[in-house]
């Protein structure tokens, strides 16, 4: 049984690991036979999916096929909806976040999430939005917080635009800036995995391309799983792509393969826009 320390786990390239353990670690995130329900309705059916470290994986599929549900299972957000439940395992660094002793609150501290619509905290300034995760989790070291806020805003490619208006309300930024603010807010927690649910669906093309560039940069440091509706986007940014349909994972592989040479006919039809 893994100790709490293991659950939390230290940054990826970490210190005291024996060679044997090193060997086992093929995947950053490993989803095993995941099922999810809303009440009696099954939204995910036996999903198996392995995600490599420092890659970007795209989830595609028609509306309602369970993409959102799937990534919400990866940080145990799914079960917070009333009546929702899930079974199966999700291993992050080989430790099961659905393990009985695993604390869903602690899990979320290591796995960041960016939502479909930008959702900065309405009462907080730009600065406080980014610092919120640290401060509300009890970190009091000012110097540390300031450092991290700056670094996260830089990481989200927002620093240069907002560095003079850190005291402005977060909600006063433009839509694209708000979404990057939300990314910065997630980055401040130093996550190992970043989940993004259609982060550009509410944005204009210019803002969208900024976020896409950002994804490129970010995956150097973390593992990204992104839901997208837009197949070009998936093709542009993802190393791997998973196609889902009616709660099932139909096909998964390197993006190039999925787009150019899918194995399943369903995938092919979806990619070519024949339904959806």
């Amino acid at each position: 049984m893994p100790s709490e320390e293991q659950l939390i786990n230290l940054p990826s390239n970490s210190l005291n690991k024996g060679p044997a353990e090193e060997m086992k670690r093929h995947y950053k995130v490993s989803i095993k036979n995941l099922n999810a329900w809303f009440g009696a309705k099954q939204a995910l059916k036996g999903i198996n999916l392995d995600v490599k470290e420092n890659t970007c994986t795209a989830l595609i599929g028609p509306s309602g096929c369970g993409k959102t549900t799937l990534i919400r299972c990866l940080n145990r957000m799914h079960e917070m909806t009333i009546g929702a439940s899930a079974t199966g395992n999700v291993l992050v660094d080989d430790v099961d976040i659905y393990e009985k002793k695993a604390d869903p609150v602690l899990v979320k501290r290591r796995i960041g999430m960016v939502f479909q619509k930008p959702n900065p905290f309405p009462t907080m300034s730009v600065y406080d939005n980014v610092a919120a995760g640290l401060k509300l989790n009890g970190i009091k070291d000012k110097a540390l917080i300031e450092e991290i806020v700056k670094e996260s805003l830089e990481g989200a490619a927002l620093w240069s635009e907002v560095k003079d208006e850190l005291d402005k309300p977060g909600v006063s930024l433009s839509g694209g800036q708000q979404q990057r603010l939300c990314i910065a807010r997630a980055l401040a927690m130093q996550p190992e995995v970043l989940l993004m649910d259609e982060p550009t669906s509410a944005l204009d093309p210019i803002a969208t391309s900024k976020i896409e560039e950002l994804v490129h940069e970010l995956k150097k440091d973390l593992t990204i799983i992104i839901v997208t509706h837009n197949m070009q986007q998936a093709a542009r940014i993802a190393d791997y792509t998973a196609f889902m349909y009616l709660g099932e994972l139909i096909e998964y592989g390197p993006t190039k393969q999925i787009f150019e040479n899918p194995e399943k006919e369903l995938t092919e039809r979806y990619i070519s826009g024949k339904f959806g």
Partner: peptide, 25 residues
């Protein structure tokens, strides 16, 4: 609800989200 979820996704305890994010809003 997205505001609450933003808070949960940062691993902040519920009572703090409630007071400092939800009630503050």
């Amino acid at each position: 609800n997205t505001i609450r979820e933003a808070g949960y996704s940062l691993g902040i305890p519920k009572w703090k989200i409630t007071l400092f994010v939800v009630v503050a809003s």
